[in-house]
């Protein structure tokens, strides 16, 4: 169980996230939606502690992660892997090394500094790449890959961490519809098969409905909606995105293949 209590973050005099309370079941697939600047990224980054909360605490299995420091903090980071919108791979390293970087918390310093990876680690990395269907690019440089492939490499790196949680910060916002589906399917597969909790910031509402079993809506740093995908319609969207939100025709903004059919009603213009 991942529990957030009164979590807040201020940047100067601007409040990015204020007073968020959440209880997230292990193994669930949670989507976080809301307009740009609503505090979604900050919320995710506070869980991994890339951003420090200014108030409140975040507990995972009754351990307060906001108090951790030093190697305990790094162990916690290894447990909650992070996926970024811009992939954040090391572009000058080959794919295999990028993926094995997911083990840096697990290996002694001298081995990471000399790149002395064991055969088991290399095999594990190849297996992670296999699972994402891109084993053949293992020896290419990361920047030689397409965006969709790079994001799958990033997911393979996350898998190497043997994480309990995967935090994905708009993982498909830079991808075309086909690659977006491949990446979201991979995250769902990891969530279902390995029971890893996935928490995912999304801009496309139909993607959130399709993949998530719980949707959290944020506006101005606060949680304004928390419920099942079926409840995420009409008035709720207006509440999150403002009065204009209800006018958003999802067929225009969607990046998923085959929206508009498939029994997903787009909200009616008000």
């Amino acid at each position: 169980m991942l529990v957030l209590e009164g979590v807040s973050r201020r940047f100067g005099d601007k409040s990015a996230v204020s007073d968020v309370d959440l209880r997230i079941e292990p193994g669930s697939f949670v989507g976080v939606v809301g307009p740009s600047g609503a505090g979604k990224s900050t919320l995710l980054r506070m869980i991994n502690r890339l951003v420090e909360p200014t108030a409140g605490n975040i507990r995972f299995e009754d351990r307060d992660t906001t108090r951790l420091s030093g190697s305990a903090l790094r162990d916690w980071r290894a447990q909650c892997a992070m996926i970024f919108q811009q992939f954040n791979l090391v572009s000058r390293l080959d794919v295999l090394t990028n993926v094995i970087a997911g083990r840096l918390n697990h290996m002694p310093l001298w081995r990471s500094l000399t790149k002395s990876f064991t055969d088991a680690e290399r095999t594990m990395a190849l297996r992670a790449l296999h699972r994402l269907g891109i084993a053949e690019v293992a020896l290419k440089r990361a920047d030689a890959l397409s965006g969709g492939q790079q994001q799958r490499v990033a997911i393979a790196r996350a898998l190497m961490q043997e994480p309990r949680i995967i935090l994905a910060d708009e993982p498909i916002a830079s991808l075309d519809p086909h690659n977006a589906k491949v990446v979201m399917d991979a995250l769902r597969d990891i969530n279902r098969r390995d029971g890893i909790l996935v928490m995912c910031n999304l801009h496309t509402l139909d993607t959130a409905r399709t993949y998530c079993d719980r949707i959290i809506g944020m506006a101005n740093g606060r949680v304004v909606f928390d419920g099942a995908p079926a409840e995420f319609v009409g008035g709720v969207i207006e509440q999150i995105y403002g009065a204009d939100g209800a006018r958003i025709d999802e067929r225009m903004t969607s990046t998923s293949l085959g929206v508009g059919g498939a029994g997903q009603p787009a909200p009616m213009p008000a």
């Binding site: 697990h106 680690e121 095999t123 594990m124 297996r127 699972r131 898998l159 043997e162």
Partner: peptide, 14 residues
């Protein structure tokens, strides 16, 4: 689907 875990990597896999 074989799990991506270090302790699940055996000599045969390598």
């Amino acid at each position: 689907m074989r799990p991506v875990r270090l302790d699940a990597i055996l000599a045969d896999d390598i």
